[in-house]
């Protein structure tokens, strides 16, 4: 466990808790893409199939349970409990445009043509693009609540920190995971524009506005 990976996981947990906090306290899913959250659910379920078959550590299992349960809870809040506040008109990204390519790529590029490895690769590829509906929604609505911006910053930072972890592991352990690293770089690059807006606006106390 490198420090970067621990920082990345904590940033990930922070993001998940920030989103639950925002929806629960404002009793509103306004500005949140349900489609992104649905895809995150898929990401965790397809990635952690080994939750009950391979025990790595208490930390590893606890985090997997947390990620799966928190993402299910988030989807429940958006599509059921606070359904009336879900802004479906602005959450128009076609999920199949990312789910299908991720599945096809996983069938082509995987470490073994087994259900588990294909499911894992699908999860890695899907996670890289799952944020797209949310980023599209922010550009469509033209702005994001501050807490939503902080959520996105924490979420984008998590995989960026993982990249540092992979560099660290390659340097010290001499191996790396091409699938995870490639997808992780794509995932982090997709936040590029958001990171720019975050650092130039939100940090200075202004609302995140996507300039028209």
């Amino acid at each position: 466990m490198t420090l970067f990976r621990l920082a990345g996981d904590l940033s990930h947990v922070l993001a998940i808790l920030l989103l639950l906090y925002k929806i629960w306290t404002t009793k509103s899913a306004a500005g949140i893409s349900g489609k992104t959250q649905l895809m995150f659910c898929m990401v965790y379920v397809t990635r952690y199939l080994d939750l009950f078959t391979s025990f790595i550590s208490v930390y590893n299992s606890t985090m997997k349970v947390l990620f799966i349960s928190a993402s299910v809870a988030t989807v429940y809040l958006i599509y059921f409990k606070f359904k009336a506040t879900y802004d479906g008109n602005h959450d128009t990204f076609r999920m199949e445009f990312v789910i299908v390519p991720a599945l096809i790529l996983a069938l082509i590029w995987n470490y073994a043509f087994t259900f588990f490895e294909i499911s894992w690769a699908f999860s890695i590829f899907l996670e890289a693009v799952a944020i797209l509906p949310q980023l599209f929604m922010v550009t469509k609505t033209g702005e994001a609540e501050n807490i939503t911006s902080h959520y996105l910053f924490a979420l984008g930072s998590y995989r960026a920190l993982y990249i540092l972890n992979w560099i660290d592991r390659y340097y010290f352990e001499g191996h790396w995971d091409p699938i995870a690293v490639t997808a992780g770089i794509v995932q982090t690059v997709l936040y590029g524009d958001f990171f720019y807006l975050y650092f130039t606006r939100v940090i200075k106390g202004r609302k995140l506005q996507v300039l028209p």
Binding site: R5, D9, E117, Y162, W166, D177, A180
Partner: peptide, 10 residues
């Protein structure tokens, strides 16, 4: 190889 490299990661 890459396979086991990051299965201990989340």
């Amino acid at each position: 190889s890459g396979a086991t490299a990051s299965k201990d990661e989340l």
